[in-house]
Structure formats: C-alpha cells, structure tokens
Amino acid sequence: MVTSNTDLAYNTKIEDTLVVTKADAVINWLRSSSIWPMPMGLACCGIELMASGNSRFDIARFGAEVMRFSPRQSDCMIVAGTVTYKMAPHVRRIYDQMAEPKWVIAMGACASSGGMYRSYATLQGVDRIIPVDVYVSGCPPRPEALLDALIKMQEKIRRQPAARELLGGAKAKSA
C-alpha cells in the first residue's frame, strides 16, 4: 500500500510518468552500475581482489560486489593473477561461456603482460587469448587501482552503442 507521503520518493505528480532520454543511456546506465564480476583469482592478485571486495575498499560502492563463480551469471571477467599455458585454455573456455555483453579486466602485471614471469610456463599477457578492455598495472595492483579500473570500464560501457547492438540486429553489427 502506497502511503500518501510521496514527496520523499519519486513524485509522479511533479515528474509525470515519462522520462525522456536516449535508449543507449538507459541501457548503459543499467549495465555499468551492476557489473557482476567473474573473479578469475589465479594468484597473488586474487588476494587484492578479495581485499577490494571487503570492508575497507568495498567494491559494492560501484555495484560490482556480486562475485559470481559461474560464468553464465557474470558480465566482467577480472583476470587476477598469472595465467600459465596450462591454465590458458580454461580461462578462454570460461570466457566463451560468459553471456554477451562481456568485458575483461586484466588485473596486474602478470595478466597484462606476463610481468616478472618471463619463463617457459607463463602466458605473456592474457590478451593473447581473450580481448582485454582495461589493463591495471601493479604487482599486485592496490585495491584502489582495481576500483579505478572498474570506474574506467564503467565509462567505457557508457560510451557503447548499446541500443543499436541490442535492437538493430545483424545490420547494425555489420555496419
């Protein structure tokens, strides 16, 4: 039951039932403020990823606290740690299982470029197997750096032609 006091909330009498905006803006706003990360915590960076999810840094402030270990439910893969050649196919397969639209953050030097592990066993940058949207430097990056990357990615999402991709079908995609 709605009470008579509607001034505190959205007031339909003042603002009416219509909000005029661009479809892109709405879709991107929704997408960017509820990023569900897939925590690909492979090594040391995974600890900083956990730290950014916890009380002091609180990734929930940016709507990305819903860490999902199932690729089907996540939008953004955070590759946190060294990807070895043995692990690389699994990372790729998990990425393939994620539903569109999807984004990737390469967290830390190892995921971005192989970092200090220039050796026979380490993939020299996760961008060799999956497309990366944001790279974060640091070994490991501080949680603030990860949050910064998240904000950068939100900005990137807000610039995307979401409506055309979503509603325009194949024609728009080929264009």
């Binding site: 050649y85 690389a88 196919p89 592990y117 220039r118 050796s119 026979y120 066993a121 020299q124 999956i130």
Partner: peptide, 27 residues
Amino acid sequence: FPLAGIDVPLPDLEVGEVTRATAAPAP
C-alpha cells in the same frame, strides 16, 4: 632448455586453433 621456453601448441588444441596462441618463447 632455455628459460624462455620452446614453441609448442597449447594443451587444448581447440582453444589454440581459435586464438592462434601457442606456448611461444617468452620475450
């Protein structure tokens, strides 16, 4: 055996084919 490694296919050939990545020597 060099530290950088020797070029071999990835453990999963299917993924190797899609991504065209190999276990290439580290620069």
